[in-house]
Design a protein around this nucleic acid. Structure first.
Length: 444
DNA sequence: ACGAGAGTTGCATCA
DNA sequence: CTGATGCAACTCTCG
């Protein structure tokens, strides 16, 4: 029981299936669970207010769960490169644990932190738990390159075998007495005001952040075993008034829900039953996430056209008025405008709705670069996930992975298939509207 | 090496 | 309602 440990939460904002947190608890005398919030980043980042609220919710939830285990979350203000040397000294830290993150930005940041830890004689333990597989291993198995088709991807992961099973949450017994510091005023959960955001500008909170809500939502959908077994993504509706899919994506993005917990829950339900298969099944959806994470790790400049070896070079137009009209939901196409309105208000739109507006912005109608669309999604989606966002934008603009440019979504006909009465376009009128509550919207 | 076959989820039209 | 077809001709994988 000699170690003084920091567990650094970044993504992975949960207690269940958190191998790095469990590693911190081994031979541990004192544990400091931290989240680092960089005020400069908060001011500069392209993150919309609804996602800030989701993050704050997730941090509150994590703190509450830790307090139930006689611990707490320390939200440390500053840049990782500045705060770690101070924390190492102040808390006499001997070990630092965190979850592996494969994004280029994170890899850069973590390289610096590894260097600082070494300087201060701090042991670092990293664990993979944000993805089903070790992404590096998938690339190795495919001869050092990210697979470019889903069939190829599935072939490669089959050689690796099934994903690891999720681990249990730490118990009160394991956590007990390892947290002695309080400093509520110094390390408290931030408010939106502290982040320089006006809470009045948030939309209705339909998808609250946090592990508790993630697991509640998972339970709710997994109860419907018939629905789970027959799930086929292309047959779900992009414009249903209540979501036709699980909306677990924001929880997976922040790691409030472990993808391995989700995967194995599905295995249990599929067991002995006839069920749909990848790529259209729910397992298939998790494999797509893995597919794009692998692409983001293995392909250079993955979020850009320039310098990106898999991205077709297109001479896109730069029509600022068209771009604004798309972003502000005033293209004049009610289906497109309704989707963009829902995106701004609620922070989540159905995957096929993303297809419709992405095709419209790029190859379908406006001929504007997918990178512009990527920025708007990055800001407004609760589930904005670097690799998935870049990958899907390249897909939909027929820049990479998908190349059948003549399959274009009609901005009129596509929505009509699943919304004959136009209920969705009435529910989400064009243009930037004031925040409305669900109650007002339904007119009740 | 090179060609055949396949590729998460299109649309309009026609039988 | 379901399924076949033309549209026009892309890129990746695999044998």
């Amino acid at each position: 029981m000699s170690h003084s440990c920091i567990h650094w939460f970044r993504k992975g904002l949960r207690l269940h299936d958190n191998p790095a947190l469990l590693a911190a608890l081994r031979d541990c005398r004192r544990l400091y669970p931290i989240f680092i919030l960089d005020p400069w980043f908060a001011a500069a980042a392209n993150v919309g207010i609804n996602r800030w609220r989701f993050l704050v919710g997730a941090l509150k939830d994590l703190d509450r769960s830790l307090r139930e285990l006689d611990s707490r979350l320390f939200v440390v203000r500053g840049k990782p490169g500045d705060v770690f040397p101070e924390l190492f000294r102040e808390w006499s830290v001997t070990r630092l644990t965190f979850e592996t993150d494969t994004e280029p930005y994170s890899q850069q940041r973590d390289k610096e932190v590894l260097r600082l830890a070494e300087e201060h004689g701090v042991e670092v333990i990293q664990k993979i738990s944000h993805t089903l597989y070790n992404i590096e291993r998938i690339i190795e198995e495919n001869n050092g390159k990210a697979p470019l088709t889903c069939v190829r991807f599935q072939t490669v992961v089959k050689t690796i075998g099934p994903p690891q099973r999720p681990l249990p949450s730490p118990t009160l017994q394991e956590m007990n007495g390892k947290c002695t510091e309080t400093h509520d005023e110094k390390y408290g959960i931030p408010t939106l005001e502290e982040l320089g955001k006006d809470p009045q500008l948030t939309g209705p909170e339909i998808y609250p952040g946090g592990e508790q809500e993630a697991l509640r939502r998972l339970d709710k959908y997994m109860e419907r075993t018939g629905w789970v077994c027959s799930f086929e993504k292309p047959n779900t509706s992009p414009n249903a008034l209540s979501p036709s899919t699980t909306v677990l994506s924001p929880y997976l993005k922040f790691g409030c829900l472990s993808v391995r917990t989700f995967w194995w829950r599905l295995v249990g339900i599929y067991q002995g039953k006839k069920h749909s298969q990848p790529p259209v099944s729910l397992h298939g959806q998790l494999l797509w996430r893995e597919f794009f994470y692998t692409a983001g790790r293995g392909i250079s400049n993955f979020d850009r056209m320039e310098g990106n070896p898999v991205c077709v070079r297109v001479d896109w137009d730069s029509n600022l008025e068209y771009l604004s009209a798309w972003r502000e939901a005033r293209t004049g196409f009610p289906f497109i405008d309704a989707i963009m309105t829902q995106l701004r208000q609620e922070g989540w739109i159905h995957h096929l709705a993303r297809h419709a507006v992405a095709c419209f912005l790029t190859r379908g109608d406006l001929w504007i670069s997918w990178e512009e669309g990527q920025k708007v999604f990055e800001e407004l989606l609760l589930d904005a996930d670097w690799a998935l966002n870049a990958g899907n934008w390249q897909w939909l603009s027929a820049s990479a992975f998908f190349h059948q440019y003549f399959r274009v979504y009609s901005p009129v006909a596509f929505g009509k298939k699943t919304d004959k009465n136009g209920d969705y376009i009435k529910d989400f009128p064009a243009g930037i509207t004031q925040t409305r509550t669900k109650v007002n919207k339904k007119g009740t």
